[in-house]
């Protein structure tokens, strides 16, 4: 229980991950699927940042006093966020094309249309 109380952010991480994954799988709207994907990734970002946190520590800048929180995960996640944004952009681009082609965002409907082709 002690772990749960002090490390609750890990729990939150996996709740967020689960939410995102569920949204990706269960939602019929492909835009919402993309949102789900973003939520999923955010869970992982949270995981990293939480891991870097140190109680009572300062931001890792030279003017602040040690101890610092670990800077490396922040850098990593900055990169990961950039990657995530690019992914979202590509995904949305695809959605635009799919909408132009099929006139719907409903994954089930698209599948039906495809099946009839």
């Amino acid at each position: 229980m002690d772990v749960l109380a002090t490390r609750y952010y890990y729990l939150v991480t996996f709740v967020v991950l689960g939410l995102g994954a569920y949204m990706m799988i269960a939602n019929r709207n492909i835009v919402k699927k993309i949102i789900g994907m973003n939520v999923f990734q955010t869970g992982i970002f949270l995981f990293f940042i939480a891991a870097a946190y140190l109680d009572g520590a300062n931001p890792p800048v030279l003017t602040a006093e040690p101890p610092y929180v670990s800077p490396l995960p922040h850098v990593l996640i900055l990169t990961a966020i950039v990657v995530g944004v690019s992914l979202t952009a590509v995904a949305l681009g695809l959605v635009v094309r799919i909408y132009a082609e099929y006139g719907t965002l409903d994954a089930e409907l698209i599948r039906e249309v495809r099946h009839d082709e």
Binding site: M24, M37, L87, A91, L94, V95, R97, R114, E117
Partner: peptide
């Protein structure tokens, strides 16, 4: 549309 749908699916699972 087929390739777009396939690419989106690839994107989701790949991500």
């Amino acid at each position: 549309g087929r390739s777009a749908v396939a690419a989106l699916r690839y994107l989701f699972i790949g991500t």
